[in-house]
Design a protein around this nucleic acid. Structure first.
Length: 344
DNA sequence: GAAACGTGGGA
DNA sequence: TTCCCAAGTTT
């Protein structure tokens, strides 16, 4: 998060964007958490003043909507604690809420504190992860629990920099945990928030493939000054993207800021730029890895090579996938051609 | 910055 | 049935 601000893109969409982009580019370097509050406030004020819709006009309606329509998710309850929030954030990376719910409950019941998970084998985390997908997240969550136990006396750190230093925690998750679990003021930019801002403030259907400096500036400019309000705003804007301002079939009829949405006011123009990369899956190493790991998850006993060979007929790809799992630490090779989930 | 990394449900 | 997408991170 250091980057030099990118120049205003020449192909930037029409009217509403122009004012946002120019105001954003006029600001100096990206702000860091360590910068003086005074400088930060001034910069955000200048960026905000040029927005098509002043932030204050968005906060009220979105926060009021959130009060009425927020889902009652377990990690939003006070008893979830910072560990519950952190576990949910790991599981929710690229995985829908409905699939996370049951696994989350079992996880917290089994490992109510970071030290509990840290004391168990990493392979148990991979097993409990079940079919959530991207099992390296389970390994990283376990590693993060170990780090928290060793470096932070078993308490999930509240400092953004310390969170960012944990395995599996990147820009989004660090801000999310600091904001949701500790009520801090951070720009929380996930795919939902980015889409809401792209539409409401920038006037385009979809945000760029990767988060840009302009998006970070915009998010900071829209962040309420008050810490508690900023924290609620982060959750509210995310929920709006998850329930109303969805990627497809958005429900503008129920949107609290549809009357101020730059994209809707300009006739909801279709996304133009380069097509968003679709991810292939069938026939890939990822599919093979998934099948191999599924076999190993189902038993605590060592699995013979032959049992793994049965899941995929192409030997070269099969071997490459297994090697990859071992290299990633997701599978532990034993003597005699046996394998199991990692015990250490 | 691009590519790798799982899985399953809805349109 | 195929395609798209879901609270990203790491290399």
């Amino acid at each position: 998060m250091t980057s030099i601000d990118a120049p205003v893109t020449p192909d930037a969409p029409a009217a509403p964007v122009a004012s946002v982009a120019s105001a954003a580019s006029a600001a100096p370097e990206a702000l860091d958490a360590r910068e003086a509050p005074a400088a930060r406030g001034a910069l955000e004020a200048s960026a905000a003043s040029a927005l098509p819709t002043p932030p204050a006009e968005l906060h009220g309606p979105v926060l009021a909507w959130f009060d009425r329509h927020a889902r009652d998710l377990p990690w939003r309850r006070p008893e979830a604690g910072a560990w519950g929030v952190m576990v949910s954030e790991f599981m929710l990376q690229q995985t829908p809420v409905v699939r996370v719910l049951p696994v989350y409950e079992q996880w917290l019941a089994r490992w109510p504190r970071p030290a509990d998970l840290a004391a168990d084998a990493p392979g148990e985390a991979v097993r409990a992860w079940g079919r959530l997908g991207y099992p390296r997240r389970a390994l990283r969550l376990h590693a993060a629990a170990v780090a928290i136990t060793e470096r932070h006396r078993g308490d999930v750190p509240s400092d953004h920099g310390q969170l960012l230093a944990l395995p599996g925690i990147g820009e989004y998750t660090a801000a999310a945990v600091a904001s949701f679990a500790y009520g801090q003021r951070h720009a929380v930019l996930d795919t939902n928030v980015r889409r809401v801002f792209a539409r409401a403030a920038t006037g385009v259907q979809y945000p760029p493939n990767a988060t840009t400096a302009a998006e970070r500036r915009l998010a900071r400019a829209l962040l309420p000054q008050d810490e508690a309000t900023a924290s609620r705003w982060a959750a509210a804007s995310m929920e709006l993207g998850a329930l109303i301002c969805t990627a497809k079939n958005e429900d503008c009829g129920r949107c609290p800021i549809s009357g101020q949405c730059a994209w809707r006011l300009s006739g909801k123009p279709a996304h133009d730029g380069p097509p968003r990369r679709g991810q292939t899956y069938a026939g890939t190493d990822r599919q093979v890895r998934g099948r191999l790991l599924a076999v190993l998850r189902d038993t605590s006993d060592p699995v013979a090579q032959a049992a793994l060979d049965a899941v995929w007929d192409e030997p070269v790809q099969r071997a490459r996938a297994l090697d990859g799992l071992v290299a990633d630490g997701l599978v532990e090779p034993l003597d005699g051609g046996y394998y199991r989930l990692p015990v250490s």
